[in-house]
Nucleic acid binder design. Structure first.
Length: 568
RNA sequence: CGGGGCGUAGCGCAGCCCGGUUAGCGCGCCUGCCUUGGGAGCAGGAGGUCGCGAGUUCGAAUCUCGCCGCCCCGACCA
């Protein structure tokens, strides 16, 4: 393809709206243009990349028996009402204004289930894997970070339909493996985390994550053994507070002005591990006092799952006083004004010699024995794992806590949607059962943006051959003046094409500097620099974009050399 | 939805406080000359509802009010 003939508007300056590298480079390299907040047009080169990513996804989905659908974006609202998701999605769901009863599909569980209900009636019809690669609409309250969080985006969604739990497990595993292939083939460095099952009510769920400072999720990762978990469920290897020999009876002491654990540590010379921090939450309308060791931070997601709670929030100041008899800073498990459920972090199991508030402002109490002085109704892992703590897999490595971008999510749904919509089948015994479903998503734009985040420098992108818009960039230098350069460039372009390589040939009447910079910006894997001074010696220069490595080779050997570099 | 910032040529910005020539600058664009291995040079030129609407004023890019849009932080994110 001749560059002079394609629409490829590069930008020397960065539009102000772009903040993160992928967004800046996608705009500068002429891949996308923004139409509104969270709304992007794909320009020809950007769309070529998207199509390559979608094709990788398609191949891997087909390989596990997936069947591609094309589903409507316009959905009757009734079906969404039947599953309760009009309310659940709230403002995120786009409603059509001038046509009653239509919404824009933010995902397609309902529609898939609808078709399953129409036609799947027997266990003999199962299993099925149905997928689509299409535009989804979500009225994000705050679109951000370029294409990473948009109001309209492309998603591969697949749904597994199974007759048995074992069948679901198998479908889920197929997806897990397909997803690994998809990200690996795309060239992404990723990791997989177990996710909290959240409000969807399903069972297992895993997220495919890409580490990035711009990610909205936080994960703990171990570089040694590969452990990775969403911070909501991450744990680390810390030993519990050991019992100490002195086990005197409890004793109040005055701690004027001490309101934090650090005040106790610094002002009263109490070791951090002998401090028990108390926090009070209102969990499903009931007060719960939670004890954490030292300065450990309570992890609300863990609390929620430990108590199987629906709603929880920290108690307000007035409630604290009402429940405990004291204000924040002097609260503790002993001598509560009102009885409350008391739970504690695992690290405090059997602890003694502990210091905590005594529910009287300005006083604390020492020598608390968790087995003697009050009743802990249960112990749980409730603490937020921290960077630097040891990996809980016994590998001895320090955990890192990183931000990450979710590029995929696989989820065992169960029968939520099939039950709600009456999608049932008859099993071998003639018994009617709801179809057991799984749901599996991949954000296409996120793969592209994450790839750029991981593969760029200050000059531009470097694509992997698998998703590059073209494989080879031939830069014909001064071809207007140098007939021989033009001839060699064109011949090479033709030979590349004949060899099955996708070529972009920069035949523009631009100065070499402009071509070099545009080529580095777009970042095709291999640049062929055709300049007269090498061509006179029968040679041509190749540059590998990612490494900057250059080699001068015989013109005749260029194609082989390029194929070798690309390994295709 | 709360807080902050911004909106002037295709892009990046100045001008606005303190109202007053013909609204500037850089890049890009067009024409010509020249140049050609890392975003050249010279000369000439085109391009503007100063986000929109009201108001104040002899006079508004500039002051006031309302609205819209975009970006960032927070809340939210099946």
């Amino acid at each position: 393809m001749k560059q002079s003939q394609i629409f490829f508007p590069t930008l020397k300056e960065v539009p102000t709206e772009a903040q993160i590298p992928s967004h800046k480079l996608m705009l500068r390299a002429g891949l996308v243009r923004q139409l509104g907040a969270g709304i992007f047009s794909y320009l020809p080169l950007g769309y070529r990349i998207a199509k390559k990513v979608m094709n990788i996804i398609r191949e891997e989905m087909d390989a596990i028996g997936g069947q591609e659908f094309h589903l409507p974006a316009l959905n009757p609202i009734e079906i969404w009402e039947q599953t309760g998701r009009v309310e659940a999605m709230g403002d995120v769901l786009f409603h059509i204004k001038n046509r009653e009863g239509l919404v824009l599909a933010p995902t397609h569980e309902e529609i898939i289930t609808f078709h399953a209900r129409q036609h799947i009636h027997s266990y003999r019809d199962l299993p099925q894997i149905w997928y689509q690669i299409q535009t989804k609409f979500r009225n994000e309250p705050r679109p951000k970070s370029g294409v990473l969080r948009g109001r309209q985006f492309t998603m591969k969604d697949s749904y597994s339909l199974d007759a048995t739990r074992e069948g679901l497990d198998a479908s889920y595993e197929k997806h897990a493996s397909a997803y690994r292939n998809i990200y690996s083939r795309s060239g992404l460095k990723f990791f997989v985390v177990g996710a909290s099952s959240g409000a969807m009510g399903g069972s297992a769920s895993q997220e495919f994550m890409v580490e990035s400072p711009y990610g909205e999720d936080t994960c703990a990762v171990c570089d040694s053994c590969g452990y990775a978990a969403n911070i909501e469920v991450a744990s680390s290897a810390l030993s519990a507070a050991e019992r100490i020999a002195d086990n005197n009876s409890t004793e109040e002491f005055a701690t004027p002005g001490a309101r934090s654990i650090n005040d106790l540590i610094n002002g009263y010379n109490i070791p951090e591990e002998r401090c028990a921090k108390s926090v009070v939450y209102i969990v499903d309308s009931k007060p719960v006092l939670i004890l954490m060791r030292g300065n450990d931070e309570l992890n609300e997601a863990k609390l929620q799952s430990a108590l199987k709670a629906v709603n929880l929030r920290p108690a307000e100041a007035a409630e604290l006083l009402e429940i405990t008899g004291a204000n924040a800073g002097s609260i503790g498990p002993v001598g509560l004004k009102t009885p409350a459920l008391i739970i504690a972090d695992n690290l405090l199991r059997d602890a003694n010699g502990m210091v905590s508030g005594t529910n009287r402002d300005g006083f604390h109490i020492r020598n608390i024995d968790f087995n003697r002085d009050f009743t802990v109704s249960s112990f749980h892992d409730l603490r937020m794992a921290r960077a630097g703590e040891q990996c809980s897999n016994d590998c001895g490595n320090a955990l890192r806590v990183v931000n990450a971008i979710e590029v995929g999510h696989i989820f065992k749904l169960g029968t939520k949607y099939s039950s709600a919509l009456g999608a049932t089948f008859l099993d071998e015994n003639g018994t009617e059962n709801p179809i057991i479903m799984g749901s599996y998503g991949i954000g296409v734009e996120r793969i592209i943006a994450c790839f750029i985040e991981q593969n760029h420098d200050d000059k531009g992108i470097f694509w992997s051959p698998a998703i590059a818009p073209y494989h080879v960039h031939i830069l014909g230098l001064n071809i207007k003046k140098s007939e021989i350069t033009r001839e060699v460039s064109e011949k090479l372009a033709q030979q590349c094409a004949e060899a099955g390589l996708e070529v972009l040939y920069d035949d523009r009447d631009e100065s070499p500097g402009v071509k070099f910079n545009d080529a580095d910006l777009l970042g095709l894997p291999v640049q062929v620099i055709a300049g007269e001074r090498n061509i006179k010696d029968g040679k041509i220069e190749l540059k590998i974009r990612a490494t900057g490595e250059r080699k001068t080779v015989e013109i005749d050997k260029a194609i082989d050399e390029i194929r070798d570099i690309l390994r295709i």
